[in-house]
């Protein structure tokens, strides 16, 4: 530690950032003009519970973890390509929130089979992934990314709101942190839906196209599965979230003067390992380095 950089706009930098060597509080002298590392209390990186997940709970955690992971992977590709620098930062924040959720959920899922979050992310093949087709849909243009965010963030908000009351303490704790973050994602996507829908003719056309391209994948999100029957009180039954989801998005769509396109409904199947054609490419890219070095640590 040598010098402290203070961001207080009122103070002159030089009283804090001195590039000449001097002794710090502990008497060490450092002459290379380095930046002091702030002493910060670090929060836990992952939400961990004391319990080991059962096979069924692990499967459920995998569902949710994979959704977050795949979505984060896609959003991460926006960084350095966003429409404006402020949006690079905003999308980066959303991606970082989601990767945090994915890590906690995959970590928990892994406790059932003695695997790490990275074992699960990097060493499963496509049929073993449990992600929904909607998160697998490509970024497309900014309108597609926003439409996907709008749908997924509203779903996740309803999901995590209810999952906070799960009988499984770890899932409840993960949900309690995640719900605040997806609340912000919901707002971010809503703001952009409104702006694109009521912006220019071009943006409106693009927003309408994006919403109709993504809508076929909405039904799968709310489909139940035998696993849910076995996890009564622990998992949230997807079908029970539909009305809250519809009610939450309705006023935004009304204000945006957007109508839901009643067209195709994709058959889905992500929860049982049947995926969209996009996932294989995404996984190939995501896993390429790790798989070239089995057993390596990074």
């Amino acid at each position: 530690m040598s010098e402290r950089i203070n961001s207080d706009a009122d103070s002159h930098a030089d009283s804090h950032a001195d590039d000449h060597g001097h002794a710090d509080d502990h008497g060490h002298v450092d002459d290379h003009g380095h930046v002091a590392v702030d002493v910060t209390t670090l929060d836990a990186e992952l939400i961990e519970g004391p319990s080991v997940a059962t096979a069924d709970v692990a499967e459920y955690a995998l569902w949710l973890g994979d959704d977050s992971l795949i979505l984060a992977q896609q959003l991460g590709a926006w960084i350095s390509r966003a429409p404006e620098l402020e949006e690079d930062v905003a999308l980066g924040n959303v991606a970082l929130d989601l990767i945090g959720h994915a890590r906690s959920l995959l970590h928990y899922a892994g406790t059932a089979s003695n695997r790490t979050e990275d074992d699960l992310a990097y060493w499963r093949t496509e049929p073993d992934f449990r992600s929904l087709h909607i998160v697998e849909q490509p970024n497309g243009d900014f309108a597609h990314t926003i439409a996907r965010q709008f749908i997924v963030a509203h779903y996740l908000f309803e999901l995590y709101s209810r999952l906070r009351a799960s009988a499984d303490a770890t899932l409840a704790a993960i949900a309690a942190k995640a719900v605040k973050e997806v609340d912000y994602h919901r707002d971010h996507s809503t703001q952009w839906v409104l702006r694109l829908a009521h912006g220019t003719d071009e943006s409106r056309r693009r927003m309408i196209t994006a919403l109709s391209d993504l809508w076929p994948y909405v039904d799968e999100v709310f489909r139940d599965n035998p696993l849910i029957d076995r996890l009564e009180g622990i998992a949230v039954r997807p079908s029970t979230l539909r009305s809250a989801f519809d009610a939450a998005i309705a006023p935004v769509l009304a204000e945006a003067e957007l109508e839901i396109a009643r067209g195709f409904v994709a058959s889905g199947g992500g929860r049982t390992g049947t995926h969209s054609e996009h996932l294989a490419f995404l996984l190939a890219e995501m896993q390429v380095l790790t798989r070239a070095h089995p057993g390596a640590s990074w």
Binding site: R81, A82, P83, E84, E87, D141, F142, R195, L196, G199, T200, E202, S203, R206
Partner: peptide
């Protein structure tokens, strides 16, 4: 590619 987004907003 971001131009239409900035204009829309």
């Amino acid at each position: 590619e971001g131009q239409w987004v900035r204009e829309a907003a």
